[in-house]
Design a binder for these strands. Structure first.
Lengths: 149, 149
DNA sequence: TATCTACGGAAAATCATTATCCAGAAAGTG
DNA sequence: CACTTTCTGGATAATGATTTTCCGTAGATA
């Protein structure tokens, strides 16, 4: 993960370059996103923003997230049952590892993704633009707590 | 894809074996699912069921889909923005290829999935249970119609 | 200062999916 | 054959994350 402060400045610069205003709410959200180790949900971000700016509404969080999404600075992980999650540090398609117990989301550093993508393209004639690769399982911590010995 | 009639009989036998009743609505839905080449949405299935049984409600379609899902006979592809899609012919995790133009969903026959899964497990210590591998792109047909010459 | 646009906030709307409720059909029981 | 119990379908309402709408205001521009 990039340094949170550096990433924050990147995001800030990106908004400024596109002539979007840097309001206190947006700045607070940019800081949160830049420093989020995991993959926060909109609700989770809202809770934290709301603690700083009690008048902030969820709509503002969603609006800013969608803005950053359109700028390509945030990757949205959409789930049909659970809340969506957001990644503002690696806004490009990459695999995710999701713990079905604690719902933590990780980013494994795998090397075979390009090979698989190429294989798919070659086999089907598709022009592959993007991907969404999610693995579901049990993280080491949860495996441990499942087997106390 | 398995033969639709064979697959239908499998599904029918599965419900019967679990002591679920084979109502006309369920039978019609099983036939549809077994013969669906693509990956229909609940709304799409409902349209077709409703044409045969005008009193059928969407709830019945959802209930039956969820029943088959719990029996492991249908794979649900959840989308946070679009409707969910269902695959009753290959109810195990497998990669999908989604055309961003026409929304068609295909099943590429790739060989590197197991390698990638293994790599993820080895690298992270996760016990990998399942996966969801979606590639987004433009199918050959839509590429053609984009470039008329 | 005047004007124009972007923004935030509250509230209402959206919409696929799920839950609830009830009536009827099927299955089981004796 | 009653009687009971369970399952099912259908209409309807509810759900809940996300989006839209509307309006007052802050900020930029000149």
């Amino acid at each position: 993960m990039p340094d949170p402060e550096t990433r924050f400045q990147q995001l800030e610069a990106r908004l400024k370059a596109s002539s979007f205003r840097l309001t206190p709410q947006r700045i607070a959200l940019l800081r949160l996103i830049a420093s989020s180790e995991g993959h926060p949900s909109a609700a989770h971000l809202y809770e934290q923003i709301h603690a700083q700016f009690p008048t902030t509404s969820p709509a503002t969080v969603y609006k800013t997230l969608n803005l950053l999404k359109e700028l390509g600075e945030v990757l949205e992980l959409g789930f049909s049952h659970d809340d969506n999650r957001y990644d503002g540090n690696r806004p490009y398609p990459h695999p995710h590892l999701i713990c079905v117990r604690c719902r933590k989301i990780m980013d494994p550093q795998v090397s075979l993704v390009n090979d698989l993508t190429q294989e798919v393209a070659d086999l089907t004639g598709f022009e592959v633009i993007s991907h969404r690769l999610d693995f579901y399982g049990v993280c080491p911590e949860c495996r441990q707590s499942d087997h106390p010995q």
